[in-house]
Amino acid sequence: MTTAKTKPESDVVVEVRGLTVRYGSNTVLKHVDMTVHQGEIRVILGGSGSGKTTLFKGILGLTDVAAGHVAILGQKTQNLPEKQRDRLMQRIGVLFQNGALFGSLTVGENVALPLREHRRLPEGAIAELVRMKLAQVDLGHAENLYPSELSGGMRKRAGLARALALDPEILFCDEPSAGLDPLTSADLDRLILTLRDRLKMTVVIVTHELASIKAVADSLLMIGGGKVIAEGPMAKVRAQGIAAVDEFFARKARTVARQDTSVAELFGLKPAKGGA
């Protein structure tokens, strides 16, 4: 084992600098910076419409970026030659919000697809690997079903199995537990922790499930109105006393100030006292 890190920078696996994204005249992300270190579970959180999914897609190069750059595993992703980009992408796994399974393929074939495309394995080994990956997400029985025959939660788990097919170094998940029941969601959290602990995987998750954040997050990036509100290790961010963060953890309330008033206030009526 090496005694000291040769380069302090070397354990940064995802680096976002000054990322700006516009849809027409609407600037959705404004100079967002983010640094994710090797082996950490990073949660991106923020209110609805704050730009989480946009950041997610921006990191993965799925959306046009007006300014800024993204580096994954030390390689800048913009203008990367196709071959290199393909090789880089094989080192990451992505779980999309609704699984994004290919509708014309069974669950098993979906998981096998990246293996067939990028690895020269005998058919027998591929079949074995597919079964292993599906067992990992508790979907052993669903191998021959088509995505349209799955429930929402099953689709997500199948998407996760596919994302894990190539043993990625970084796993990206968009809302992995949204729409799942608390037990399934807890199982998913446990799986993510296992992946990090056993396989030293780095995980970047977009979520607003408070339970799941408390269970897995090592570090946070809170985003609001397209800007970074807070970033850093969980304990440190929570100790900073940033109002939006406190509010989120206190009662998982909305992080934008309410702009509306009740009709009673509109007419200057005093609130009703106590009971009826």
Binding site: D86, M89, V94, N98, F102, G103, L113, E117
Partner: peptide, 16 residues
Amino acid sequence: TMKVGEEIDAMQVMGI
């Protein structure tokens, strides 16, 4: 339908 279901995004990140 593939586009709306993010399948095309998935293809892109899977290098397909």
